[in-house]
Computed example of a mutant assay.
Amino acid sequence: MEHVPLAIIGAGQAGLATAHAANHNGVHPVVLEAAEHPGGSWPDYYDSLTLFSPARFSGLPGRAMPGDPDRYPLRDEVLDYLRDYASHLDADIRCGHRVERVEHTPKGFVLTTGDGVAVRARTVVAATGGFTRPHTPSLLGLDTFSGQVLHTAAYRSPDSFSGQRVIVVGGGNSGVQIAAELAEVAQVSLATRKPVAWANQRPLGRDIHWWFVRSGLDSAPLRRIWQNGPTLVNDDGRYRAAFATGNPDRRDMFTHLDGDKVTWSDGAVETIDTLLLATGYRPALDYLATTGALDDQGQPLHHGGLSTTVPGLGYVGLEFQRSFSSATLRGVGRDARHVLRRLQRRR
C-alpha cells in the first residue's frame, strides 16, 4: 500500500489552497478528486454565475486571477483559473478517484477510492467543502407537490422556463441572481423567511470586499450575526431595479404546498409550475462516517478546522469554519495555512 505524508480529499478551491500551503511547508501532497478535472463544484454551477467579489479578491494564495483586477469574473473564468492554478502546484493530483471510505488507525489513515485504490496517509485534510451536497429544506407538502422541483445545483439557464410561474426559495446572492434572470422569461417570486437587505456593492467607490479586508471583518467570526440578521445581497443596483418592477417580487415564505398549488402566508392560493430551491448545500463528508469525526447529522466535529475527535484530521472550505469568508476563494488560503500548521504541531 502506498504511504504519503498528507492526503487531501477534493481538488476544488479548498483542496488546491491546501496543496499550496503544504508546498510552503515542504510537503508534496496527494490530492484525490472524484471528477475528471480539478475545479470542485464550479463546473456544475449555473451558466451565468458571476462572482460578487472582484478578481483582485478572488484569487488563491500565490497566484492572482489574471485580467482586470476590478472585474467580476464569470463561472467559466473561475474554472479556467482553478485548473491553471492546479497545473502550477507541486502536488500529485489524481482525478477520477472518488474517496469512498476513510479509516482511522493507530498508524494514521487509510483512504479507499471507488475504483479500489488504497492510500495510507499520516494526516488527512477533507476539502470537499460545503458546496457538494444540495440541501432540500423541510417544506410542508413538498412530497405531494406535482410541479417541477429543482435545486440551484441542477439549474443552468432560463431557457426551459419560458411562460412559467416560478417560485425561488432562498434569498442569498445566488437566489436573487437566478430570480432576476428567470424573470426575463417567466413570472417569478422570491420566497424568504427574512427580508432581503441590499448591500451596496461599491460603497464610497470601493468594492465592499475591499472594506471587509481593510476593516478586518473578512476574517471575523460573524456566524451568529449573519444567521440572525437579515439576508444580505451584494448589489450594484441592477437587482434592486429588477425587483422594483414587480417581476421578480419578494414574498414572505409560503405556508404549504398541495398538488400544483402554493398557499402564501396571507392565505392567497395560486398554481405554480416550478419550485426552485436556492437553499444552499451541506458538506459531503460521508467517507468519514466510520471514523467518529461526524455528529449524528453528519456535520464535522471540529474547532477552527481541526477535528476535535480524530487526531490528524483537518478540514478546509467549510462555511464559517473560522471566519465570515472561510468558504470563499479569498478565505480558503488563510484557513488552509492555519489547519496545516496545527496538524504539524500535533504530529
Rank of each mutant, 00 (worst) to 15 (best):
R94G: 11
G141R: 00
H28G: 09
A186W: 04
G163F: 05
T309Y: 10
A180F: 03
A268T: 15
T144S: 13
S219I: 09
R75M: 08
R251S: 10
G229S: 01
T255I: 13
N173Q: 12
D335Y: 01
T231A: 14
H20L: 12
V117S: 11
V168L: 09
G130P: 05
N173L: 03
A22D: 01
I8F: 01
H256V: 06
D47N: 13
N25F: 12
A278C: 10
R341F: 08
A278D: 13
A11L: 06
N247D: 12
A7I: 09
G172E: 07
L329I: 10
F320R: 09
R250I: 15
T132Q: 11
A91M: 04
G246E: 07
Y81C: 00
A336P: 00
A154Y: 09
L313I: 05
G305K: 00
R322K: 07
Q297R: 14
D218V: 02
P134C: 08
S307V: 01
T274Y: 04
S323P: 05
L49P: 08
N200F: 11
L140H: 12
V176Q: 00
L182M: 06
V78F: 03
S215H: 10
W198D: 05
L318N: 00
Y287C: 12
Y46Q: 10
H338V: 02
Q297A: 14
Q187P: 04
H28R: 12
T231E: 15
V185H: 08
V262K: 12
H37N: 09
Y155A: 10
R346L: 11
I8K: 00
H303A: 14
E103P: 08
F52C: 12
T328Y: 12
I9W: 05
H302M: 07
A179L: 07
H28N: 12
I93G: 04
T128R: 08
L74K: 14
T255K: 09
G12P: 02
P230R: 10
I178M: 03
R224H: 14
Q187T: 15
P311K: 08
G317T: 03
